[in-house]
Design a binder for these strands. Structure first.
Ligand SMILES: [Mn+2]
Ligand SMILES: [Mn+2]
Ligand SMILES: [Zn+2]
Ligand SMILES: [Zn+2]
Lengths: 146, 146
DNA sequence: GAAGAAATGCAACTCAGTTGCATTTACTTC
DNA sequence: GAAGTAAATGCAACTGAGTTGCATTTCTTC
């Protein structure tokens, strides 16, 4: 997503100390195209450093809480994590392949997420919107085995 | 949602026999405003008849598979179930209160879910779209205790 | 009403995530 | 730079929602 980002600085900018594990978790999420499961993040981070499963979950919670990272649901029971929306990286919808579980980002322009919130002069307070398209990815579509 | 529906007929129309448990599960979902967790459905159905937890999950799977019922994710780890969209009951977005877990249906007109699929002449095959707004419901908003 | 099929129940299991507490690492203060 | 404190990490056990395998019950069909 953002190769030139300094993730250490980013961490400190929200009041978190930049430990090796936090920096690697955030970097793994930020440098990946699409969103990731905790198990995938674990695997990637462990190529660089040893990290406990629980530590990863705690770091993910922190990053979400500080709004650096976004927790998304794929319609299954495993959360996905991706960089939170910013002006440079606007919020966007995601596509989820119901066959292989792949979850990828859609072009922010194709489904503008922001304006629609204003169409709801409701009594509740809307904080965020999540849009997910489910279907078959290109691979699973053309390759009906497995 | 649909008080005048005959849920037995609805079950048979998709090739399922209408057993007492299936009819009660479908009726519970269909007559409720908003979407329900399995635990809530279980509680409601058990006021009428005894039913095993596993049986409920199997019935829910069947109803989803036959497209009578829709499985929604609330951003937490528990699925929600509501009637699937039809011409009379069009598909719509849902609001989820991050504080109390309430999940309610939004006016189908406010966020038209259909047309946007056509904006994706992608290589993947889109089967459905899910739109969820997260925030605080009216109660939790005005009542910040608990 | 017997035989076979479908539906339901029950116990054990799985998987993702959480909790409590011990240990290690990073910051302060002297 | 050592001691003391706070924060971060590790480890084991736990939780909650959902699933699986198989036994039992209920519904069909002849
Ligand atoms: Mn994304
Ligand atoms: Mn609904
Ligand atoms: Zn796929
Ligand atoms: Zn609420």
């Amino acid at each position: 997503m953002c190769d030139q980002c300094d993730y250490g600085t980013l961490l400190r900018s929200v009041g978190l100390s930049d430990t090796p594990r936090r920096e690697l978790v955030l970097g793994t999420i930020g440098n990946h195209q699409g969103v990731l499961r905790p198990s995938e993040i674990l695997e990637k981070v462990r190529r660089r450093i040893s990290i406990n499963r629980v530590t990863l979950y705690r770091i993910l919670d922190l990053l979400v809480q500080k709004k650096l990272v976004q927790r998304l649901s794929a319609g299954d029971r495993t959360f996905r994590y991706g960089l939170a929306g910013t002006s440079r990286h606007p919020d966007h919808a995601h596509f989820h392949c119901v066959h292989c579980g792949l979850m990828e980002c859609l072009d922010p322009a194709s489904i503008p997420l922001d304006l629609r919130q204003s169409q709801h002069p409701q009594l509740m307070k809307i904080e965020r919107m999540e849009v997910r398209l489910d279907g078959l990815c290109q691979t699973c579509r053309s390759h009906p085995d497995v």
